[in-house]
C-alpha cells in the first residue's frame, strides 16, 4: 500500500490507495513504523493518489509523527488535494506537519 523513493535527505513514501481510511490506517502505520525502525526517520508522505483522508488515517499519521520525532526524525506531507488541504488547514494539522505543494529537492 506504499511505495518508497530515496531522496536527498529524506524518504518519499507514496500512499498507493485512493481511500486513506480506516481499512488501511493500521497497515500504513505498521509499514511506516518499520521504515522508521530501519533508520528512515525523516519521511515525506505523498498523497498524490489519495482522494480522501478520514480521522482513522489522520490518527495513524500523528502516531507516526510522534514515533519519528522520538527517533530524532520528522514527517511531512506533500501533494494534498483541495479537500485534504482544507482538512489539514481547518484542524490545524498544517501547523503540526510541514505541508509541501510539490516534492522539495532537500528536506528543510
Amino acid at each position: 500500500m506504499i511505495e518508497t523513493h530515496a531522496k536527498n535527505g529524506y524518504l518519499l513514501v507514496k500512499i498507493k490507495a485512493k481511500e486513506a481510511n480506516l481499512d488501511v490506517a493500521d497497515l500504513f502505520k505498521t509499514k511506516m513504523y518499520e521504515l522508521i525502525d530501519q533508520g528512515n526517520a525523516t519521511l515525506m508522505v505523498s498523497f498524490s493518489e489519495v482522494a480522501y483522508v478520514d480521522s482513522s488515517f489522520l490518527g495513524a499519521l500523528v502516531s507516526i509523527l510522534k514515533y519519528a520525532m522520538s527517533k530524532q526524525g520528522d514527517v511531512s506531507v506533500v501533494d494534498l488535494n483541495k479537500d485534504i488541504n482544507n482538512l489539514f488547514s481547518l484542524i490545524r494539522m498544517n501547523k503540526v506537519f510541514k505541508v509541501y505543494n510539490t516534492e522539495p529537492d532537500v528536506f528543510a
Binding site: 478520514d54 480521522s55 482513522s56 489522520l58 490518527g59 495513524a60 500523528v62 502516531s63 509523527l65 510522534k66 520525532m69 522520538s70 482538512l87 481547518l90 484542524i91 501547523k95 503540526v96
Partner: peptide
C-alpha cells in the same frame, strides 16, 4: 513548536 514530548491526540472524528 511540536516536539516528541508534545501531547497530541490520535482521535479526530468528533473534532473534525
Amino acid at each position: 513548536k511540536v516536539t516528541s514530548s508534545s501531547n497530541l491526540l490520535e482521535h479526530y472524528g468528533l473534532l473534525i
